[in-house]
């Protein structure tokens, strides 16, 4: 079985977020890029499945839609253990556009399992995985907390409010994964980093796709006022403020 892991390239969580061109574009100067945390967990689970002798997973490929600035992030995915990386060279317009590009690749290069993180930490759209499933006419399962393959029999747990669903499906399928899918993301080893240099990173041209949504305006949220400091001896003052000014009690 082959697993494809969809990778978003996102600013490091400690990055100070800034915008340019009338706040319409993310200012990427000086930004450290990382693998989207949920995608990193997806890749980690894919690695665990490949290492487990109880199933036939034998290849892991990562895919990204975006420009060359993501190549370092894809190399990191290779260092963690993916066998191959593919970058579709396109400027991602929206989730529909990204999912469409990945689906076009899948039509030529079939995979058995497609894993996608539940959301990206930049645009937080949570839509790409379900859209890939739809474009490919594959079953798609969201909020996935575990994917188990017992001799290629697929069992999936999905988080729902107040509990979980235990599901079975057939390959090929798309799983949109969230926390719980793997405990800790893997860190590349020295050997992994050395090996990653020799692994293939393929750059594919994008296909023409209609973009269905358009961002017409960007605004920064209202700045927060400075924090009002209260004397630590005065719980009274805090209670008063909560009652009268904030009206929350």
């Amino acid at each position: 079985m082959k697993i494809l892991v969809c990778i978003s390239n996102v600013p490091d969580t400690t990055t100070k977020v800034k915008f340019k061109e009338g706040d319409s574009l993310f200012d990427d100067s000086g930004v450290q890029w990382i693998i989207n945390p949920w995608d990193e967990l997806a890749l980690t689970r894919a690695m665990e499945l490949k290492e487990d002798a109880g199933n036939s997973v034998n290849e892991i490929c990562v895919i990204h839609v975006g420009g060359a600035s993501a190549d370092a992030t894809l190399r990191k995915a290779l260092a963690i253990g993916a066998d191959k990386a593919v970058r579709i060279d396109a400027c991602p317009a929206d989730a529909y556009h990204v999912a469409g590009q990945i689906a076009e690749y899948l039509k030529e290069n079939p995979f058995d399992i497609i894993l996608s993180g539940i959301e990206s930490s930049d645009y937080n759209g949570s839509s790409v995985g379900a859209m890939i499933a739809e474009f490919m006419d594959y079953p798609g399962i969201s909020s996935v907390t575990s994917v188990n393959l017992d001799d290629d029999d697929i069992q999936i747990n999905r988080a729902i409010p107040g509990g979980k669903q235990v599901l079975k499906t057939e390959a090929p399928f798309v799983a949109v994964v969230q926390k719980g899918i793997a405990t800790e993301p893997r860190i590349p080893s020295m050997r992994g980093i050395m090996m990653a240099r020799k692994k293939p990173l393929e750059v594919k041209p994008a296909v023409e796709l209609e973009v269905l949504t358009e961002s017409i305006k960007f605004e920064l949220p209202q700045e927060k006022g400075a924090c009002k400091m209260i004397d630590s001896e005065s719980a009274e003052q805090l209670v008063e403020l909560l009652k009268n000014e904030a009206k929350v009690l």
Binding site: A95, S127, A130, S142, S143, L212
Partner: peptide, 23 residues
């Protein structure tokens, strides 16, 4: 935009080929 809606929305929008604004 609940657990359920964040699954249903993209799937429906892709099937009928229309734009979706999430969340």
């Amino acid at each position: 935009a609940t657990t359920l809606g964040r699954d249903l929305g993209p799937r429906v929008s892709a099937r009928v080929e229309t734009g979706l604004t999430a969340d």
